[in-house]
Design a protein around this nucleic acid. Sequence first.
DNA 1: TTGTAGGCGTTATCAC
DNA 2: GTGATAACGCCTACAA
Lengths: 320, 320
Amino acid sequence: MANIKDIARLAGVSASTVSRVINQSGYVNEKTRITIEKIMKQLDYVPNRNAVSLKTGRTGFLGIVAPYFNDSMNLLLSHFTMAAQKEGYNISLFMTLNDKNKEIQAFEMLRRKQIDAVLLLIRLNEWSVLEQYAKYGPVVTWQRLDSDIIHSVYMNQYDGYTLALEHLYKKGRRKIVNLYGNLESLNTRSRMKAYEDFCKKYNIHYNENFHGIASVKNGENMAQWWLKQKEKPDAFATLSDSVAAGLFTKAQEYGLDIPRDFSVMGFDDIEISRLLKLTTIHYPIDLQAKNAFIIIDNILNNKNTPSFPLSFHLVERKST
Amino acid sequence: MANIKDIARLAGVSASTVSRVINQSGYVNEKTRITIEKIMKQLDYVPNRNAVSLKTGRTGFLGIVAPYFNDSMNLLLSHFTMAAQKEGYNISLFMTLNDKNKEIQAFEMLRRKQIDAVLLLIRLNEWSVLEQYAKYGPVVTWQRLDSDIIHSVYMNQYDGYTLALEHLYKKGRRKIVNLYGNLESLNTRSRMKAYEDFCKKYNIHYNENFHGIASVKNGENMAQWWLKQKEKPDAFATLSDSVAAGLFTKAQEYGLDIPRDFSVMGFDDIEISRLLKLTTIHYPIDLQAKNAFIIIDNILNNKNTPSFPLSFHLVERKST
DNA sequence: TTGTAGGCGTTATCAC
DNA sequence: GTGATAACGCCTACAA
């Protein structure tokens, strides 16, 4: 593999001149520039990125960190990758499973200058631990977080959930069962608050809810639960399309008629909701991804690109 | 950030000795080793990987290249990542979309020593072009390829498809419609051959088939097609669970009874087939991923780990 | 406009 | 067992 000195020798110049041509920095005589470029092409020369990285302290790699990847996260991943690649960055992936150490290792890469920034989808360690690393490079998260150190492209679930509840109300539903996720999570809190406010607004007192309902399986179980109730609820608001899908398919299996027997609201607008024709809440993961990159790019390169505004919207299909 | 010289100075030794401790190579006095290790821990020292990479010509990064990522590919990605991380490697991701140049760029990283190996899921450029890069590092593909230069973890679709057909036969189906993918692809050829041999074996002459049927949408359209037929086929063998899912859900919408009206066979055994209870063909993507890593690891580190044997199996659910 | 020299942080080859 | 010393390939003051 040819290196910068080879090029310099063949062009009859010094390495620094070649470097200037490569990086388009400083002054270079037009004629010598052309000669050098020709020789680089001839020798099929490309700079050794490891040397560049050592020297500059930047690798052009951005890290994406998550315990695992599901549909929505893949969407985020795709759009972020596209945005990054467009600007010449590459992506490195860290699947932390449920290993806090793995997550730390990923952040260590930032410290070791193996990656220039981190996009954290779902965290394992405490924020206070992760914040320590922000001094080594920009850190952006998909999760809800109010911090000056770690940036967030989070969208307040309150608005989205309210949209879902309002839709069910408009469809005449008054006995809405809320299927929440993890009680500890801030998202769940937001949703609970949304339901509380919704009830106040319409003077509703029905309050049946479950938490820890996050999987297809969990959703399926809810169908059975519904069958057993005397006072039947007329709608389910869910955490995700997966939960809704489980509930919906199981209900069909039992011969129920959705939405006549009850409505099912999904959340996320992923593939499966399209397939099963579930009404759901769409949110712009693509724009979140772009915003995440914009934040990183702004910090890394002293730019000032504005973010995209984000908003939820209802996708009405046939389950409500 | 402390570097190796700082450690050396504080330990009262030379950088070389510190290096020996770090890499556990050569002889180091037990006592000095302990001192050095203590100081490294104190200063929270970690070697700068860029310097290591420059020196050794290895980065510890493995590239995964694909135009996009769907369910099966994500599964492959996960398992490969886990295997790689376990051995201290990291993953970098290249989404080529449909841009041949992007794919080349990814392979260029191999040449520039930014990554140590490539796992190629779906190619865009000609094999002959990509083979050029194999001299810069191991290249493994998920696709069918018979080459000494690029390695493959492909599984012959003939066997899997035969399994599907045999199952339908056992269920009394004799008019099986084949929904093939791209006619050009070697996979399609294998499937066609499987059907041909199947017909010979059972003396079947029915031969209705379509090609280019690869999406949910395509599957949906087949439901409508079935309705319009006078001589109704009694089964569909498909390219993928997505196609099967589209066909299945649309048929249900039309009030058809699967499998009474006709059987639907999926392929892949992804989430959606579990959800919709589609009979399908499972193949061990996890093992393919592990094998891909084993091949790379063997080459990179002169190991000789044997691969896992791979085989298809039938997952019988309710659509047949 | 170009060249020189020094350094980025490691590893590897020798001597000692 | 240990320590100089020379790479690895590039960038960047500074000098010319």
